[in-house]
């Protein structure tokens, strides 16, 4: 299983996943929380202006979901390419 070709494919799948996750990471923090905060602040959820909420709460919750999603997907990718760790 562990041919150079297999490794290359595994690494590409990994990079793709990381890229997608970091895109979301960038959009919620730098995007919603900093760059477009004024536009989002025109909307409200409860007592929060939306941009302010993303900056102080929403981005943190998104980060959490992202890491667990990444860990879950990575384990799948590990087994798909047969590079997962033994059970020692």
């Amino acid at each position: 299983m562990s041919t150079p070709e297999n490794h290359r494919k595994y690494w590409r799948a990994n990079l793709k996943l990381v890229f997608c996750c970091l895109l979301v990471w960038f959009i919620v923090s730098f995007g919603c929380g900093v760059l477009f905060v004024d536009e989002l602040n025109q909307y409200k959820i409860g007592g929060f202006k939306l941009g302010f909420w993303f900056a102080q709460q929403g981005s943190i919750f998104t980060f959490l979901i992202l890491i667990f999603f990444y860990a879950y997907r990575m384990n799948k990718i590990d087994s798909k390419y047969g590079v997962q760790e033994g059970d020692d």
Partner: peptide, 21 residues
């Protein structure tokens, strides 16, 4: 106020980098 949000995002968002990179 809002300007301090960068500390909240910065100090937690770093973990995304840590976990993935």
């Amino acid at each position: 106020g809002y300007d301090a949000s960068v500390y909240l995002m910065g100090w937690t968002g770093g973990y995304v980098l840590l976990a993935m990179l």
